[in-house]
Amino acid sequence: MIYTVTLNPSIDLFVKLKELKTGMVNDIVSERALPGGKALNVSRILASLRIPTIATGFSGGFQGAFIENWLSKEGINTSFIQMDNPNRTNIKLYEGGKHTTINFPGSLMKSETVDELIYYLSRVREGDTIILGGSVPPMEDPTDNDIYYRLVSVAKANGADFVADVPSEFLINIVKEKPLLVKPNGEDIEEIFDVKIQNIDEYIPYGKKLIELGAKNVIISYGAQGSMFFNKDSIYRTHEIEDGKSIINTVACRDAMIAGFIGTLVRDGDPIESYRVSVASATATARVLDLPSRDAIMDMLPLVDIEKVQ
């Protein structure tokens, strides 16, 4: 079974304006509320690909009920840990071709609630995969900020694989624990290694370094220009896909890449085909406001051209 763990889920409120006039009253053109959260999006994409998951994390208030009801309607199994406070609501503003995100920190998390999630995930076993993604909510006890390390320890102790799409400050230490996949973007690489990347080929030594440190598979994405895939044997890359369609929303593209890769790898065991589905999933996601259908992802697959670099 694949478990997705979203520590800080949200309602994402997408708001379209003709023009944002600061200091003035603004009337919206359209709005839409969607469930948000990195690992939560992974569950939703995997559901589109007809791969079952259990979505867990922290849930509270009407926001939590909204998220859980949405997932249930999509046929996704949920087992969230209930908390006293509500989940957050984030705002995504679209105006004049620009996209502005306003993220709230999330509710304060009690230690007993954190312990409950750790206990719940102690059920994982060899053959299971835990996908960890997103920000860490504020913790009542600052020592609970190590929650990602604790979750990785649970996975390893029980022989389960894990995927870490976590904030860059956690990534290097977690890579040493041999994750099945890490998927930093270009900005993450610059922050982690304190470098400034000038051209795409400069990502290669840092992808190799993440493999050397312990990651089994690495995907580095750099926006519409494409991405690179690294494993212990080879390096591959894809370029921008020209399908004549506009990029509408890039919020969940990273999550779609993880879902496409892990879902295919768990099913078929082929890392190169997994990378192909990963790219198709992310590209199809960029073309819609929410998340793409399975048909949209499959239609994108023939357009993905993978080039071997080394």
Results as ranks from 00 to 15, higher is better:
residue 142 P to S: 12
residue 288 V to G: 13
residue 299 D to H: 12
residue 212 E to R: 06
residue 66 F to K: 06
residue 204 I to W: 00
residue 151 L to A: 01
residue 191 E to G: 11
residue 85 N to W: 11
residue 109 M to S: 04
residue 233 D to A: 13
residue 95 E to Y: 15
residue 122 S to V: 10
residue 175 V to P: 00
residue 32 R to F: 10
residue 283 T to N: 14
residue 300 M to D: 08
residue 145 N to Q: 11
residue 26 N to H: 05
residue 173 N to F: 00
residue 22 T to Y: 13
residue 90 N to E: 07
residue 193 F to E: 01
residue 277 V to G: 07
residue 228 M to Y: 02
residue 265 L to G: 11
residue 75 G to S: 12
residue 180 L to K: 00
residue 123 R to N: 14
residue 245 K to C: 09
residue 61 G to D: 07
residue 103 N to G: 12
residue 162 F to M: 04
residue 18 K to P: 11
residue 112 E to H: 14
residue 14 F to Q: 13
residue 24 M to Q: 15
residue 204 I to R: 00
residue 302 P to A: 06
residue 71 L to K: 08
residue 301 L to A: 12
residue 78 T to S: 11
residue 22 T to G: 15
residue 275 Y to N: 04
residue 233 D to F: 04
residue 221 S to F: 01
residue 163 V to Q: 03
residue 49 L to E: 07
residue 236 Y to T: 01
residue 69 N to Y: 05
residue 305 D to R: 14
residue 273 E to L: 10
residue 222 Y to G: 08
residue 270 D to I: 07
residue 137 P to K: 09
residue 25 V to T: 11
residue 141 D to S: 12
residue 213 L to I: 02
residue 204 I to A: 01
residue 52 P to Q: 13
residue 118 I to A: 10
residue 298 M to W: 09
residue 304 V to D: 07
residue 26 N to G: 07
residue 74 E to D: 08
residue 203 Y to M: 11
residue 209 K to I: 02
residue 11 I to Y: 08
residue 4 T to G: 02
residue 296 A to C: 08
residue 155 A to L: 10
residue 61 G to Q: 11
residue 307 E to I: 06
residue 143 T to R: 15
residue 261 F to S: 09
residue 80 F to V: 11
residue 85 N to T: 12
residue 134 G to H: 02
residue 235 I to T: 04
residue 213 L to R: 05
residue 61 G to K: 14
residue 62 F to R: 12
residue 209 K to H: 08
residue 131 I to F: 01
residue 109 M to D: 02
residue 18 K to F: 09
residue 281 S to Q: 12
residue 184 P to G: 06
residue 212 E to L: 10
residue 62 F to K: 14
residue 41 N to W: 03
residue 99 H to Q: 14
residue 24 M to E: 14
residue 23 G to P: 11
residue 150 R to K: 15
residue 193 F to M: 07
residue 274 S to M: 06
residue 285 T to L: 05
residue 264 T to Q: 10
residue 196 K to E: 13
residue 172 I to H: 02
residue 79 S to Y: 11
residue 182 V to Y: 00
residue 268 D to H: 11
residue 47 A to D: 08
residue 239 H to K: 13
residue 2 I to L: 03
residue 27 D to R: 15
residue 7 L to W: 06
residue 216 K to D: 00
residue 187 E to Y: 14
residue 210 L to H: 01
residue 143 T to Q: 15
residue 212 E to M: 05
residue 100 T to F: 06
residue 62 F to V: 10
residue 133 G to L: 10
residue 161 D to R: 03
residue 138 P to V: 05
residue 270 D to E: 12
residue 29 V to H: 11
residue 124 V to Y: 02
residue 162 F to C: 06
residue 131 I to R: 04
residue 121 L to Q: 07
residue 54 I to K: 14
residue 6 T to I: 01
residue 230 F to M: 07
residue 174 I to W: 00
residue 131 I to S: 04
residue 152 V to K: 01
residue 31 E to G: 09
residue 74 E to C: 04
residue 148 Y to E: 01
residue 251 V to Y: 02
residue 193 F to P: 10
residue 47 A to M: 13
residue 213 L to H: 03
residue 43 S to K: 08
residue 27 D to W: 13
residue 188 D to M: 05
residue 160 A to C: 09
residue 92 K to A: 13
residue 24 M to S: 15
residue 203 Y to Q: 09
residue 279 V to L: 08
residue 27 D to E: 15
residue 97 G to E: 06
residue 161 D to E: 09
residue 104 F to R: 15
